[in-house]
Structure formats: C-alpha cells, structure tokens
Design a protein around this nucleic acid. Structure first.
Lengths: 99, 99
DNA sequence: TAGGGATATCGGGAAAATCCGATATATCTT
DNA sequence: AAGATATATCGGATTTTCCCGATATCCCTA
C-alpha cells in the first residue's frame, strides 16, 4: 500500500473516469453485455470510451493496477479489468486515520 | 473540490509528511510551544523539519492550500498553517461514494 | 502454421512537477 | 529610515508525466 503511488495514479482525469466507469460496467459498457462483468471490462471497450490510443489506455490500466486500485484477468486474448473495492475502502480509512 | 488537484497535492512524500506532522503540532513542533497552535505552525518550523529549502516548503504549503487541505493565517511576519480537517472528511467520503 | 485480432511494451516529443538559489515583499525593531 | 527576519515569488536545471505511433507478444482460428 504505497500511498504516493496510489495518489499519483489518481492524479489524472482519464484514470479517474475509468475507475468511475468501472463502478457500473453494465451501464457504461453496454456493448459488453455478453459476459456478465464478473471478470470486468476488456481494454478495447475502455479505450473506445476514453477516446485515447490503445497504448495509452493499456498503460493507464497498468498504472491503476500497480497502485492496487484494479485487478485484471486474462481470458483468451482479452484482459478484463475490474475495480478492487477493498483498496478503496482501505484508502478511505487511511485518509481518515493516517493521513 | 477539484479531485485531480487534491490527488496531485497528495502525490509527494514531503507534502504527505507535512500533513501528518500537522496532525499533532505539539508533538512535532515543540519549538513552537509559545503560541497554542490554534493558529497552526509557521513556515520556518515546517521547513526546518522537512530539510528542504525555504522556497520549496513555501511552495508546497501553497500547493496544499490551493487543494484545500490546509488553511493559513498571517500574524505579523509569520504565516501559520494548519490542517483543514473538513477537507479530509469530505475526501474520505468521496473515495467511498463518488470515486 | 499462417494470419488476424487484442493487448503490452518501446521510444520519444511536449508539458508539468521537483527542488534549488536569488530576489522581492512584508513586517518588526531600533 | 535602516536593518533584520519571515515568507513569497521568480527563473531555471533536472526529472517525471502525458500521450502518441510503431512494434512486439500472445492467443485464437482457418
């Protein structure tokens, strides 16, 4: 739980948006209704919505993952990303007690 | 309440330390026992503890203030900084509900 | 096993952050 | 008014972030 790394990951508008979109994948990624979102949302869907290049979005997702804010699952050629809710819970507590 | 600005302000080890020191000024700034800390701690004390130059620490405190995380009071030639606890409370809630 | 699609990684130009020394401003004292 | 002290602001060298295009890797299918 590296605090500076977490806050750096959160210091970007697009990355904050991605995290927000992943709160309600069924609303924000209707094209991916086939799988039930238990795995998360694949990079391509997120990239399309973000409107940035594939490499940039892939890098942003790695940044979020290194910070522990999302988890990924590889299924075939797709990598699905979803929020790590526990991390947000812990972060919220850290801000109240430690920070 | 600009979220990106807040997280950027928190994305620095020294600034996090300053915020932490200001949680217990009487413990961390014993040299300033004369005034009762209601006003906060002056820049010079923080600078000495941080071990960075005066200009850097002054700039860091401005950054924290622009983000709303600290408040300042000018008294004579001193500027006293203290935490804005309300901001941390709100931030903690934002992480739980909005982020 | 060849080709195609999804994702990751690499190299880089532009912009922002980091932290410094020098200087400006404000205030207090004498 | 002059000197001393505390803080703020400025200019800049260095590092980091942002975001891209090109390329590499992985996996699936014909």
């Amino acid at each position: 739980m590296n605090q500076v790394e977490i806050f750096k990951a959160l210091s970007n508008k697009t990355r904050l948006q991605i995290l927000n979109w992943l709160k309600e994948p069924e609303v924000n990624f209707p094209e991916q209704l086939d799988n039930g979102f238990e795995e998360g949302v694949c990079v391509g869907q997120i990239q399309k919505k973000a409107g940035l290049t594939q490499s940039t979005v892939s890098e942003y997702l790695s940044t979020l993952q290194r910070a522990g804010l999302v988890k990924s699952t590889r299924v075939g050629q797709w990598t699905y990303y979803k929020r790590n809710e526990e991390a947000f819970s812990i972060l919220s507590q850290i801000i109240q007690s430690e920070l």
